[in-house]
């Protein structure tokens, strides 16, 4: 998507009016009667014969100057190609909505059992249940291994612990295909805990997600896997085959209040259980989870707007050279 980083310079186009005005107000030919223009016409023929582009010069300078001005203004406006961000149109209803998404009703019919252990999280469970085929099994961490489920979710006690001041007990929210200890480890951040959640490259977890105005109060840093989102530059959402780790408790952020939350949860389900999603959705997931792709680089390419101003700057310089050449050497 083309964006202008400095649209204020568009005022520079008004200078075109100045150039045209100068052309209109330039010195006019004063009339004078002469006995005969016979010899003067011969002079002009001779001039045109020795300078064949004299006429061309008169007519080409104004367009060149206007084009050069346009190129300069466009270069100053810094056009840039930015990756298209998903629109904030809710394809999934908010967590408190009773309405089921039409697409899921039709495509997803395989029954799925999800075991959830740890603190109660209404938002999370609601988001998980958005798929009609999902059945949430409430259990404890100890009994998790014995629970027969397709997916195991460990909800941290972060909010309750934070209130009691035990920071060391902070833990991530883990989605895993296998019960037991998580595949990914984590650590606590060295400085700064509160921050905005931001995307990190393209990942199957953050499809259709913007994380706009989403803040996290406390978090841990997942170690290992691929990064999908960051807070203060620290990875907070990481994923690997069979496991997704959120370095924060959603209840300790405003994420559940956003449309992004149910989408994120459903993306996690789609990533971890691709067999339960439709063919089209799986294709999307597989494309996003390309193992050969370097997440960091992909993220940079996706995030950094590609500035195109240099093209217009080059065009401007070219036109400036052309204008000088025409006025100096042509005719």
């Amino acid at each position: 998507m083309l964006k202008w980083l400095q649209p204020g310079f568009a005022w520079g186009f008004t200078a075109a009016g100045g150039i045209i005005l100068l052309y209109l107000l330039r010195r006019r030919h004063m009339p004078r009667g002469v006995p005969s223009t016979l010899l003067w016409q011969e002079v002009i023929r001779e001039q045109e014969a020795s300078h064949p582009f004299q006429k061309l010069k008169r007519h080409i300078l104004l367009p060149i100057q206007l084009l050069a001005l346009s190129a300069l203004v466009l270069a100053l406006m810094r056009p840039a190609m930015v990756p298209e961000k998903p629109a904030e149109v809710p394809t999934v209803p908010p967590a408190d909505s009773q309405e089921e998404p039409l697409a899921w009703r039709e495509a997803d019919t395989t029954p799925v059992r999800i075991a959830v252990a740890g603190a109660d999280s209404v938002f999370l469970e609601t988001a998980l249940k958005l798929r009609p085929s999902v059945t949430v099994l409430r259990t404890t961490t100890e009994e998790m291994a014995s629970a027969e489920a397709d997916l195991y979710v460990y909800v941290p006690e972060t909010a309750a612990e934070a209130e009691s001041g035990e920071d060391s007990a902070r833990a991530p929210l883990v989605f895993s295909r296998t019960p037991g200890s998580p595949l990914l480890s984590w650590r606590t951040p060295e400085n700064g805990e509160e921050g905005s959640l931001s995307l990190y490259g393209r990942s199957p977890l953050t499809e259709q997600i913007t994380f706009r105005d989403t803040a996290v109060r406390t978090y841990v840093i997942p170690v290992g896997g691929k990064t999908a989102a960051t807070v203060n530059g620290d990875p907070v959402i990481a994923y690997t085959a069979g496991e997704v780790m959120l370095g924060f408790d959603p209840q300790d952020s405003n994420l559940p209040m956003k449309y992004d939350f149910p989408i994120l949860i459903q993306n996690i389900l789609s990533y971890l259980m691709p067999e339960t999603v439709s063919a089209l959705s799986r294709e999307t997931v597989e494309e996003g989870a390309d193992p050969g792709e370097e997440p960091a680089r992909a993220g940079e390419e996706a995030e950094q707007p590609r500035e195109l101003g240099w093209i217009f700057a080059l065009v401007f310089l070219g036109l400036l050279t052309l204008e000088y050449g025409v006025s100096r050497y042509v005719g």
């Binding site: 009339p31 004078r32 009667g33 005969s36 223009t37 010899l39 003067w40």
Partner: peptide, 23 residues
């Protein structure tokens, strides 16, 4: 005609046929 005292842009009009020549 022998020594025109012209300088600058002129629109010369032929006295006989009115033809204009810009120089």
């Amino acid at each position: 005609e022998t020594e025109p005292d012209l300088n600058g842009d002129w629109k010369l009009r032929d006295a006989e046929n009115g033809q204009e020549t810009r120089i």
